[in-house]
Amino acid sequence: MFKTNPHRQLLTALLLAAGLCCSLAVRAAQDATNAKDDDFFESDDTAAEISIADPLESVNRASFAFNNQLYRHLLKPVARGLRVLPVPVRTSLAHFFSNLNDPISAISALLAGEPRNAASELGRFALNSTVGIFGLLDPASELGLVEDDEDLGQTMAKYGVGHGFYLVLPFMGSSSLRDMVGKTATNSLNPMFQNLEFGEVAGITLAATEVGLSLDKDTYEAFYDTALDPYIFFRSAWVQNREGKIRK
C-alpha cells in the first residue's frame, strides 16, 4: 500500500485540483455569511469569526462518538498503563516519533516558499538523527532549530485553498477536505513510509499516540465533560488551531 507507484502522483494532483475547486467555492460562500461582533469588539480584528462548513455533520458526529469511545475504552487505559515508565523516558519517545515527521515539514515549508524553514526542518532532522540518537533527545531545539509544524494542508492554504468542509475521520479525528488531500500528498512524499507495510505504519502510529497520551493530563476528558456540545467545542478548537498555524 505504501510502495511507490506511478499513478500515485497523478492521483495526488487530481485530488489537489478537486480539493482546490471545492474549497474555493465553499470559502467564497462562507466569507459572505460571517457574523460581526458588536460593541468594543468591532475594533478588534482578531476577534473575527473563523468558521468551517460542515455539510456532513451527522456522519461526523457519528465518527466523533466512535473516536470518543475508542479513546476512553482503549487508547486511554493503555496510556495509563504506560505511566509506569518514568516521564523522561516517555518524553524521549515522544521526540523520536516527532523526529520522523521533520523531512515532511521541510518539503511543505519549501513548497510554501519558506526556504529558511525548510533548511531548519532538514537541519533538525539531520541533527536529531545523528547527535540525538534517532530523535530520542532533542539537541536541535537547544540549538535554536525549533520544530515547525508544516504540512501540505498548510502549504495549500497559503496558496489560497480553503478548508472545503469539516471532516471527522474514524481513528484519525478532525480534518477537512483540504487537509485530508494535503495529508494524502504528504504521505506520498514520505520516503520512510513508502517502504513500510500498513500494519507497521499503524503500529508505529499507535505507539506514538499512546506515548503522547501518557504525557497528557486528562485534559480531553476535562473539556469533553464540561462542554455543552463537545462536538462543536472540539471542532471550533481544531479550526482555530489550524488557521493559526497557517497565518504564522
Binding site: F97, T184, L196, T209
Partner: peptide, 12 residues
C-alpha cells in the same frame, strides 16, 4: 490511505 503521517501528526 497511509495512516502513519496523519495519525502521528494527529497524535502529536
Amino acid at each position: 490511505m497511509s495512516l502513519f503521517s496523519s495519525l502521528t501528526r494527529r497524535c502529536v
